[in-house]
Design a protein around this nucleic acid. Sequence first.
DNA 1: ACAAAAAACCGACCGTCAATCGGTTTATTG
DNA 2: CAATAAACCGATTGACGGTCGGTTTTTTGT
Lengths: 147, 147
Amino acid sequence: MVDTVRFRTSPWVNTLTNHRVSTLGDLEIAVLEDIWRFGPSDTKAVYARIGQSRSISLNTVQSTLERLFRKAMLQREKISHAYEYSARVSRRELIQKLVESTVRRVAGPQPDALLSAFADLAARADDDQIKRLEELIARRRAELDQT
Amino acid sequence: MVDTVRFRTSPWVNTLTNHRVSTLGDLEIAVLEDIWRFGPSDTKAVYARIGQSRSISLNTVQSTLERLFRKAMLQREKISHAYEYSARVSRRELIQKLVESTVRRVAGPQPDALLSAFADLAARADDDQIKRLEELIARRRAELDQT
DNA sequence: ACAAAAAACCGACCGTCAATCGGTTTATTG
DNA sequence: CAATAAACCGATTGACGGTCGGTTTTTTGT
């Protein structure tokens, strides 16, 4: 019964860059969030902070960390006995990547889709927001120059 | 065997706004794309334009249109015998929604996550891009005022 | 050195969702 | 009213996140 080969492009692979940009599940985001907040941690620590309350098992946290590692959102290092996971992307970088791939996915013919998307945003912003935006941009600029 | 009830928050529901923001599949995007490009169309027309080449069946296109309709990305109207589907969101609106929900999903404590993401982008932009960005914003502003 | 404890690893299962289509029902229309 | 066309229904597949239980490997205390 090999008459029709079904093929579906995985939404994972960005064919341009061959760079994976994934969708993240709720738990995955929570875990990332936790590591951003508390810094490098091992499974136990993350479990203690977010697993306990959700009444999920240590194993679940474990495999989520693992998945995040495979997705290159986390890196890990064996500290004495256990892996210590740490963020490989900052929240801002994550948002950046996610937004960029989202936009690129629905981007039309226009080359400036990203810019365009944000132009919409900026156009809607009120004076107050504009002001904060300018400050933010200035700060980011400073950060960049400093590197 | 009702000892453990597993529960998983659907990534569909934005609890803040109770507004559904979905992920779109590749075919779904292609179909939307097609309708943006060619305007209101019935299943046959869409199939002729994008189904033929992909060697998928008319039914597949049909259910994709249906799904898009359920997701409120398309509206439809019975024209004589067949449904005619038309876009309910423009490409820009779609990008807007998608970006916004993406950001909100990973947004930290900061209230200005969206702005912040924008700031990152702007900070990275070169002079040329900034110029185009300003033009874009001006144009969008004009469009808004005109309403 | 070895047994107990801890952590990693493996593999399975469930639910959801997009993609895909065959077959049946329900219009349309000549 | 019969033939044709479109809509509708429901089933299957593959991917993926979430969830664990059990087994293997590694660490460590005595």
